Amino acid sequence: MSAEFMDFLKHNYAYVAIGEFKPGKFAEAERLFANAVSTYTHGFKGAYLLREEPDTDKGIALILWDNIEDMDSNRNETHEKILKDMAHLFISPPTTAFYQVSSEISGET
């Protein structure tokens, strides 16, 4: 099989965290999320932080990777410190899971 065809068959992975922050802490968590994501390099495909409306402290973090191993390889001292700084902002630990991206549909560019 050609490399192009194999790339077509390759699926990305999504790390998903769903949680709720203490009242008024979403902005601080958003800043820390951006700091953590800025440390990612190899295999990182993009990230989203979604906030439940209207203006709640509930959110979903979605981070896209080439594969699960890439997420682990991007962990470093700075990343771990940011996650530790973020932990006290949650009401309770977020629910986390990995998903294989089975379909990807883009809109107009």
Score class of each variant (00 low, 15 high):
67 N>F: 08
9 L>P: 15
103 S>E: 14
107 G>M: 07
61 A>M: 13
80 E>M: 10
86 M>D: 09
56 T>N: 11
87 A>F: 06
62 L>F: 10
104 E>N: 13
31 R>H: 08
63 I>M: 09
22 K>E: 11
50 L>M: 02
35 N>S: 15
63 I>T: 10
10 K>A: 15
43 G>K: 01
15 Y>D: 07
81 K>V: 03
102 S>L: 04
21 F>M: 14
68 I>D: 00
54 P>H: 10
88 H>K: 14
80 E>Q: 11
91 I>Q: 12
102 S>H: 03
57 D>W: 05
33 F>V: 00
57 D>T: 14
1 M>K: 04
97 A>W: 06
53 E>Y: 12
33 F>P: 01
14 A>Q: 13
48 Y>N: 12
106 S>K: 14
32 L>V: 03
59 G>P: 08
97 A>T: 10
81 K>A: 10
26 F>H: 05
99 Y>G: 03
90 F>C: 08
8 F>D: 06
20 E>M: 07
105 I>E: 01
24 G>I: 15
1 M>L: 04
21 F>L: 15
104 E>C: 06
56 T>K: 12
73 S>R: 06
7 D>N: 15
28 E>F: 02
17 A>D: 11
93 P>C: 05
36 A>T: 05
86 M>Y: 05
23 P>I: 02
74 N>V: 05
94 P>M: 06
65 W>L: 00
74 N>L: 08
100 Q>G: 07
14 A>R: 11
81 K>H: 08
99 Y>E: 04
54 P>Y: 04
23 P>Q: 09
32 L>C: 06
70 D>G: 11
11 H>W: 02
42 H>T: 01
102 S>P: 00
60 I>W: 08
14 A>L: 13
89 L>S: 03
24 G>T: 15
101 V>P: 13
62 L>V: 14
102 S>A: 05
21 F>G: 10
38 S>W: 12
15 Y>M: 13
42 H>S: 08
98 F>A: 03
48 Y>H: 13
51 R>K: 12
95 T>W: 03
81 K>N: 11
11 H>S: 07
6 M>W: 07
46 G>D: 01
66 D>Y: 02
43 G>S: 02
24 G>L: 15
6 M>Q: 14
39 T>K: 11
103 S>A: 14
36 A>H: 04
16 V>T: 10
55 D>K: 03
61 A>P: 01
2 S>F: 05
5 F>I: 06
69 E>L: 13
40 Y>L: 00
106 S>Y: 10
103 S>H: 14
1 M>S: 13
49 L>Y: 13
79 H>C: 01
19 G>R: 15
100 Q>H: 07
69 E>Y: 10
35 N>V: 03
53 E>C: 09
30 E>Q: 11
24 G>S: 15
21 F>D: 04
34 A>C: 14
80 E>Y: 02
50 L>R: 00
69 E>F: 08
20 E>N: 05
92 S>K: 15
31 R>Y: 09
95 T>H: 09
53 E>H: 14
25 K>G: 01
63 I>R: 02
33 F>S: 06
21 F>K: 12
62 L>Q: 12
75 R>N: 10
91 I>H: 05
89 L>A: 03
62 L>A: 10
